[in-house]
Every structure is written in C-alpha cells, then in structure tokens.
C-alpha cells in the first residue's frame, strides 16, 4: 500500500518533468536542423576562398575577417546600429502608447483592435512600400494638399524621414504584441491603488505600469532592433540607398560581389554582435526580475 502511494507520488512528480522535456524536442530539433546546422556551413564558408565565378573553393584563410577591419565597413556598421537604436526607441514609444490604449479598452474590444493591427500586413510588403512612396512622393496626396496652399515641390522621397516612417511601419506590430501581452497581465487594482495614493498619469506609469511591462518591452526591443540590422529594401526605396545598412552590405556581398565567403564572415561578425546584445538584455532581465523579487 505504502509503496503504491509512493509510486504514484513519484510518478506525479516526475511525469511533468520528463513529459516537459519531450515537449521541447520538436522545437529544439527544428532550430538545430534548420538553424544551427546551416550556421555551421556559414561558419566554415567564412574561412573559405571565393573563386572568380562566385563559387567557393576549399581554402582556409582569415582574409575575409581581416578585410572587414577596413574603416568603410565599420562606418556602415555604426550607421546601422544608430538607425537600429533610433527605430527601436520610436517603435517602443509608439508601441507602448498603442498597447496602453488597447489594454484600457473594454475587454471585448481588445481582440478586434489587435486584429486591426495585423491585417495591414497581409498585403504584400512591396505593395505597402510602394503605397508609401505614392503617399510621400511629389504626386501624392500630401503634395497635392500643400500645393493648394501654394507650397510647391513637396516630396519626402527619398529622405531619411521616409526611412524612419517605413521602418516604424514595418516593425510596429512586432513591438505592440509583446508589450500588450505583458501589460494585460497587470492587475488593474494596482493602477487604481496608485491613483488613490495620489499618483498622476506619469506617476502611475513610472512606478507601476512601466516596471511591470519591463519583460515585454525588452522582448519588443530585441524583436525590433535585431531585424532592423538585416533590412535592405526600405533604405533603397524610401531613402535613396546612399547610406547602406549592414543588411545591404551582406546582400551585396552575397549577390552582386558573388563573394559568399566574405558575406559569411560579415554575417558571423553581425551574429556575434547580436549574441552579445542578447546576453546583455538577458542580464538586464535577470536584474529586473531580481529587483521585483526583493
């Protein structure tokens, strides 16, 4: 009798653990087979030598990395990092406010609003980008309205303003979703209590909502910042393509320069930088949760 109870208890304690390990298998397998394995090929190619026709020879060299030390590449990197930070900040601010708006709607409206956020992205990316060119360009509605008031020659194509708008447009949903998810889990009574204690709008947000939304904001920051590094169509179509981003650089190396080894080396460097930034964000997360626990 006692042994059976023990067996049941043991079983109950162990089953979730073993079961949960099994649940992880498909996800891990997918990432290993479709993500890590190809990356090994990339890592290997980054030390290879490109032949004249775009093929890869078996050689082993560090030249591809050495060439990346050229200041022309660091200039591109710093420009991309700057634009990435700018886009992340803009997306976070706009995403935070929009999420707060959605969360403060009645529960039965929130789903509809979230759907409204994602529907525009079911039209093709290029079609949307060309729509922005039409809107911001000299033949578009803004130029038309300004023309009526006597302001001639308006056109934001190409311009850095258009690039920032285009990037915000592309990454806003990825910023809204994680922030909304963590904001919704905040107990509304906390906000009421803070208001009762005399906190104004800023006080409530600074002391209650913002800290509790922390994980969502960090997630949103990662999901916005990292992909911005790989963007290559928006800067060309909206910004005139005079200041290439890391994404443009890698695409150029892989295609026009048909220099896969060098493209692979640039990718490995970018990957390393991203990993470092992820670790930093991870440490930040740990510290914020430690603070919450205290």
């Amino acid at each position: 009798m006692t042994s059976t109870t023990r067996a049941i208890q043991l079983g109950r304690k162990e089953r979730p653990k073993r079961g949960s390990l099994l649940l992880l298998v498909p996800g891990i397998a997918s990432v290993v087979l479709l993500g890590i394995l190809p990356l090994f090929i990339v890592a290997r190619n980054s030390f290879a030598v490109a032949d004249n026709y775009g093929g890869i020879t078996d050689g082993l060299t560090f030249d591809n990395y050495a060439k990346l030390l050229d200041p022309v590449y660091s200039k591109t990197l710093f420009y991309s990092l700057g634009l990435g930070v700018l886009n992340t900040v803009v997306c976070l601010v706009v995403g935070y406010i929009t999420s707060y708006y959605i969360v403060s709607r009645p529960p039965n409206r929130q789903g509809f609003l979230l759907l409204l956020v994602i529907i525009p992205f079911w039209t093709d990316f290029l079609v949307r980008t060309f729509a922005w060119i039409t809107i911001l360009g000299s033949g578009g509605p803004i130029a038309g309205v300004l023309g009526v008031f006597g302001v001639a020659g308006f056109s934001l194509i190409p311009s850095n303003v258009a690039v920032v708008l285009g990037l915000l447009y592309s990454f806003l949903p990825t910023a809204i979703f994680p922030i909304y998810a963590s904001m919704r889990s905040i107990d509304p009574s906390l906000k009421e209590a803070a208001t009762d204690l005399g906190c104004g709008w800023w006080g409530v947000h600074r002391r209650v909502i913002l800290p509790l939304t922390g994980p969502g904001i960090l997630g949103a920051a990662l999901l916005t910042f990292i992909p911005t590094m790989g963007v290559f169509v928006i800067p060309v179509l909206l910004g005139g393509g005079k200041d290439p981003l890391v994404g443009n650089l890698i695409v150029t190396l892989y295609t026009e320069f048909r220099n896969q080894p060098m493209g692979a080396a640039a990718s490995m460097v970018l990957l390393l930088l991203m990993l470092i930034s992820m670790v930093l964000v991870g440490l930040g997360l740990k510290r914020s949760s430690a603070k919450k626990g205290a």
Binding site: G27, I28, G35, P38, L223, I226, S267, M274, G282
Partner: peptide
Amino acid sequence: ALIALPLIVPEIVLGVAL
C-alpha cells in the same frame, strides 16, 4: 536563447545556407 537564435541571423545568410 536557442529558440530565439534564428531571429538574429540575417535571412539571406540562413536562406543561402539552407
């Protein structure tokens, strides 16, 4: 970190490698 890894690889790199 593993499950988030594909997010930080530029797509063209992963595409060519795949």
